[in-house]
Design a protein around this nucleic acid. Structure first.
Length: 590
RNA sequence: GGCGCCGUAGCUCAAUUGGUUAGAGUACUGGACUGUCGAUCCAGUGGUUGCGGGUUCGAGUCCCGUCGGCGUCGCCA
């Protein structure tokens, strides 16, 4: 070993010991007669001192050439710092190492971004020089948080008899869902593997195989556009269980969440975690993953709007649309006329054609540029419905139900943050259940699976499969943290008949079903147990527990918005010989 | 694919309605300094203002295009 201790380890108890530390020069302070270095490794910082009398003149002279990020092994004596010289900011601040000898293990070029700098470098540079960025304390802490979360999960599920089984990365492309990443086959020219969007089918097969509790930390791939919380490759804690219902899965996960919240945030959660149906979530919040840390709930005013002379309201209300409202308590203080204009522009991004607003005056009356289009009686009804009080700001969106959901949810989220209606450090955990089985795709003019095609309907809704698929609810559950979908799962279909019926509804004809999922349909006929599972987005959990603004900060080597790795410059071109072996030719036209 | 923000010294940023030789902090180089911890003090080096075109007497600033980073809509079972 080149070292006896780490740079985060030494305390007053070690005073008098002779030690050797290895690390990087975080900062150095040259005083002419002597020199101080804060030596860094992933465990912390220790001040090492090149001063007489411990350091000889030769050692001090040699120390003058040290620069940022040089790699050292220093040998010296642990000493209590002189009176008044302790540094309370450092865990090792009571002591220092007085260097008797040191070895320069490696030099460094002047780093383009400095790990010790207080200024955050541009993100492109951080990604290009990721090895320097990862030396920063914040990144170290994030990766350690990530490690703790994953270790806790593995421990928890191991305690519950789960078996970690690996599943293939090279699989086959399936028609539903996100765009696949494809890998050409050399052995089968013209054929392609697909990288898994999730290990979904394999874990169901494992249940049929009798491995009744499966867990895996699985890498998943989806070739879709990136977002602040979305990467093309991401990591899931994936699990599946046999002989369980939705409550069993949620109860099991409750236990995990309690443990993680306690360990990482010292939050004492009571179980079961709150549960809300999809229908209620959409009614009250317009979203299937509502942030329950604050109110600003949506209120339906369609019936009142239908009576209004205001055409925007009445025409929407009388043609099947919805008029829904948020009451921003004391909102007039936060949003001036110009502020409201900005909110109007904001909801436009979500398809809302406008934002109708009323201020609640001191006398309790609603006032607005559009007030003249309403009778006093009707305004009073709105005020009563919205429990309006002086200073409140009422904001209405009148549109198709879907648009009112999207626009008002986005508005609610934005205003909750801007009006500081909750402590951004706080965390709230809940479940949303009973999702619809199907969504209607207007473009494709057919039903699509809301979760995936293997999701089991609620038993009581089974008859709806034939008559009203849109009303059929699924045995599905999403774990929601702070308005973010942290995970989701379902109970699966375990009989081939129901599975074929669902495929039929989704427009997956028998031949397609057989060619794409034939192995599953076949397997379901060999004693498939009832089963279900869930997957947690580990990157998002790291974001949430670490209060990170974007998913890249939760991942050691993330990709940019254009799905590139700035360090390795992936993706890259390949030479013609490789293409030839794969039977591929590049077309650069169109 | 659409919309928006950003790109100036190695790094983080500034530069008035379009107006002289594009500045500051930091880093770097040299010097001073025996207790600093964002050390301090003195001096110095460092610029194709992402790239290409246009408007103008004059462009870091305005316009068009393009490249890159970020956010967002669509997309993401």
């Amino acid at each position: 070993m080149l070292r006896t201790h780490t740079c985060g380890e030494l305390r007053a108890e070690q005073v008098g010991q002779s030690v050797t530390l290895c690390g990087w020069v975080d900062t150095y302070r040259d005083h002419g007669g002597g020199l101080f270095v804060d030596l860094r490794d992933r465990y912390g910082l220790t001040q090492v001192v090149f001063n007489p009398p411990d350091s000889s003149a030769e050692v001090i002279e040699a120390s003058k050439s040290l620069r940022s990020e040089y790699v050292l092994a220093v040998e010296g004596n642990v000493a209590e710092r002189p009176t008044g010289m302790a540094n309370p900011k450092l865990a090792t601040g009571a002591i220092e190492v007085r260097v008797t000898r040191f070895r320069l293990l490696n030099k460094s070029l002047t780093p383009p971004i400095s790990p010790s700098s207080l200024e955050l470098p541009g993100e492109d540079l951080r990604l290009k020089y990721r090895y320097l960025d990862l030396r920063r304390r914040e990144m170290q802490q994030t990766l350690m948080l990530r490690d703790r979360l994953i270790k806790q999960m593995r421990d928890y599920f191991a305690e519950h008899d789960f078996l970690d089984v690996e599943t293939p990365v090279l699989g086959r492309s399936t028609p539903e869902g996100a765009r696949d990443y494809l890998v050409p086959s050399r052995v089968h020219p013209g054929s392609f593997y697909a990288l898994p969007q999730s290990p979904q089918l394999y874990k169901q097969i494992l249940m049929i195989a009798g491995y009744d509790r499966y867990v895996q930390v699985a890498r998943c791939f989806r070739d879709e556009d990136l977002r602040a919380d979305r990467q093309p490759e991401f990591t899931q804690l994936d699990l599946e269980m046999s002989f369980v219902d939705a409550d069993d899965i949620m109860n099991l996960l409750d236990g995990l969440v309690v443990r993680l919240a306690k360990q990482e945030r010292d939050i004492d959660l009571s179980v079961p975690l709150p549960r809300m149906t999809y229908a209620e979530a959409m009614d009250r919040f317009g979203h299937d993953a509502p942030d329950l840390r604050f109110g600003l709930e949506l209120v339906d005013c369609t019936d009142l709007a239908a009576e209004a002379e205001f055409r925007v309201f009445s025409s929407v209300a009388n043609s099947g649309g919805k008029v829904r409202c948020i009451n921003a308590k004391n909102g007039t203080k936060h949003y001036s006329r110009r502020g409201i204009d900005a909110l109007t522009k904001f909801v436009g991004d979500y398809g809302a054609k406008g934002l109708a607003w009323f201020r609640v005056e001191e006398d309790g009356k609603l006032n607005s540029t559009i007030a003249k289009n309403f009778t006093a009686e009707l305004l009073a009804k709105f005020a009563q419905r919205m429990e309006a009080e002086p200073g409140d700001l009422l904001l209405f969106v009148a549109d198709r139900w879907e648009v009112t959901c999207k626009a008002l949810h986005a508005l609610r989220t934005k205003m909750g943050r801007e009006m500081k209606l909750y402590d951004p450090q706080s965390m709230h955990f809940s479940w949303v259940t009973e999702f619809p089985m199907f969504e209607y795709d207007d473009e494709a003019e057919r039903w699509t699976a809301m979760h995936h095609p293997f999701t089991a309907p609620l038993e009581e809704d089974l008859p709806l499969l034939d008559q009203q698929p849109g009303k059929c609810r699924a045995q599905a559950y999403d774990l929601v943290i702070n308005g973010s979908e942290a995970g989701g799962g379902t109970i699966r279909i375990h009989d081939a008949g129901t599975q074929q019926k669902v495929f039929g509804l989704l427009g997956i004809d028998e031949q397609t079903a057989r060619s794409q999922f034939g192995f599953l349909l076949e397997a379901l006929q060999y004693g498939a147990p009832p089963h279900g599972g869930i997957a947690l987005g580990i990157d998002r959990l790291v974001m949430l527990f670490g209060q990170l603004e974007n998913i890249r900060d939760a991942i050691a080597f993330p990709k940019t918005q254009r799905a590139a790795d700035l360090m390795t410059e992936a993706p890259g071109e390949v030479d013609l010989q490789q293409l030839r072996e794969l039977g591929l030719r590049i077309r650069l036209d169109d």
